[in-house]
Design a protein around this nucleic acid. Structure first.
Length: 410
RNA sequence: GGGGGGGUGGCAGAGCGGUCAAAUGCAACGGACUGUAACUCCGUCGGGGAAACCCUACACAGGUUCGAAUCCUGUCCCCCCCA
């Protein structure tokens, strides 16, 4: 695959920056991208009101698509979310109301607006909702008009299906149908927007290929698909989890300081990869930074954190986060950007203080922290779990060396 | 429909009448080392309580026992094989 040198800006960027896992027709897509504006889409579930770093590869890909002169389509799975894609899930997803789904779509839209330009222009991003066409689907006519184009033989040959069958895990009819609906989405987007490209994670390959086939058969249009590699950290663990949970891209869900910290704590070995994927720094710069060692790579992580935070939350948020981090970690001081909790002034037990500040999940955990010597108030180690604290002014609480929070008296 | 095997802490997976808040591994958290890394090492890891101590837990509901995650009965769920 890599023997072909792409000529289009978009594909070249994708290859150089490590976005590309696979493509259905590398040369064909390249040509289409050179010929005119190619609307390209990625589908997103509406299960939460924000997206997280696990989506960031896809988001950046859409951003590059727009930057290189094409049209991004962020398809909301409003229709499919009502059913729920059960693949990989242990239990059936709880059903969301239409209202919840709409709220979630609005939240997701907020995230995208930071990365993409929406509007009515040829290269402006649009955000359709597949409920608009899936809700009206009639089972019998769907089977008759579209079901005929899918053979079970072929569907069984897809890895996503084969894996499940090989592992002797049940695959419900619902899941099996999911790929038909997604194929239908692609075809519909091709009709409505002239969409010529679907992108997604490597696990979406089968679904994407089905959409391409269906679009060719029904619309008689040649469309393309490309996938991104599954992102893992250098130590083999999943990317995008932190102590407190998912790394949300929405400031309501995760403070910009904590978001910044997530990137600041990138493993050495991942710095280059993340710079290329999640920032827009020139390629050579990314590669140079990745080769640094010791203090150098440490500074590179700050740069990474600043760049990603600027994209997701703006330059001001990034600067504030960096200032706080430098104050806290380099000078041992206090920064405004630390997670802050307000409490009524007065006496509280240390244990409760740590729980309320979000530094301990339970009183037991707070006590454990204290007995292990990891709990500090204004940098003084707490030794007595029975201590009563008079909350007044601002206190800096620390759990270990990295987790800090401020408590303010009302 | 018949036969068999299972459901244990965030996950994986022991335990199969008392010494079990439950081995071990992973994850997580704290500490040492450092660069706010990685690796390694040490410690912690159901909840409430300052503590003594108390409470809830081995799918669910009952039962047998001085005593049950462990035995019995019923219910629900999962997997496998046969039809």
């Amino acid at each position: 695959m890599m023997t072909y040198q792409p000529k289009s800006d978009f594909l070249r960027t994708m290859v150089e920056r490590g976005f590309l896992q696979d493509c259905t027709d590398f040369e064909g897509l390249d040509e289409a991208l050179l010929t005119g504006v190619v609307p390209g889409y990625i589908g997103f579930d509406c299960t939460a009101d924000s997206l997280h770093v696990g989506h960031l590869t896809q988001i950046m890909m859409l951003r590059w698509l727009q930057k290189t002169g094409h049209k991004p389509i962020t398809l909301m799975g409003g229709g499919t979310t009502k059913i729920g894609d059960p693949s990989g899930k242990d239990e059936a997803r709880q059903l969301l109301t239409t209202e919840q789904i709409n709220d979630n779509m609005a939240g997701i839209r907020h995230v995208f607006e930071r990365f993409l330009t929406f509007g009515d222009g040829a290269q402006d991003a649009v955000q359709p909702n597949n409920a608009d066409w899936l809700d009206e689907l009639n089972y019998v006519s769907f089977l008759r008009d579209y079901g005929r184009h899918f053979t079970i033989n072929r569907m069984l040959s897809f890895d996503s299906v084969k894996l499940r069958l090989d592992r002797e895990q049940p695959l419900t009819f619902l899941e099996f149908n999911y790929m038909l609906l997604q194929a239908y989405d692609f075809m519909e987007l091709n009709k409505r927007y002239g969409c010529g490209l679907q992108m997604g994670g490597s696990d979406q390959w089968g679904n994407i290929v089905n959409g391409i086939d269906l679009t060719r058969r029904i619309n008689r249009n040649q469309v393309f698909g490309l996938t991104t590699p599954l992102l893992t950290k250098a130590d083999g663990t999943k990317m995008g989890k932190s102590a407190s949970g998912a790394i949300w891209l929405n400031a309501d869900r995760l403070s910009t300081y904590e978001f910044w910290q997530f990137w600041r704590n990138t493993l050495d070995a991942d710095v280059g990869k993340f710079l290329k994927l999640f920032t827009e720094l020139p390629l050579e710069e990314c590669e140079r930074l990745a080769t640094l060692e010791g203090a150098g790579i440490n500074e590179a992580k700050i740069l990474l954190a600043n760049e990603v935070t600027t994209l997701a939350h703006g330059a001001e948020a990034a600067a504030a986060a960096e200032a706080t981090a430098r104050e806290v970690f380099e000078k041992g001081g206090v920064g405004d950007d630390l997670p802050t909790v307000s409490l009524p002034a007065g006496e509280t037990s240390v244990v409760q203080l740590f729980v309320k500040a979000g530094l301990a999940a339970s009183g037991k955990e707070a006590k454990r922290l204290i007995s292990e010597g990891g709990a500090k108030i204004d940098d003084e180690a707490v030794t007595d779990a029975g201590l009563m604290i008079d909350v007044s002014g601002t206190l800096k609480l620390s759990a270990g060396k990295k987790r800090h929070a401020l408590v303010k008296a009302d």
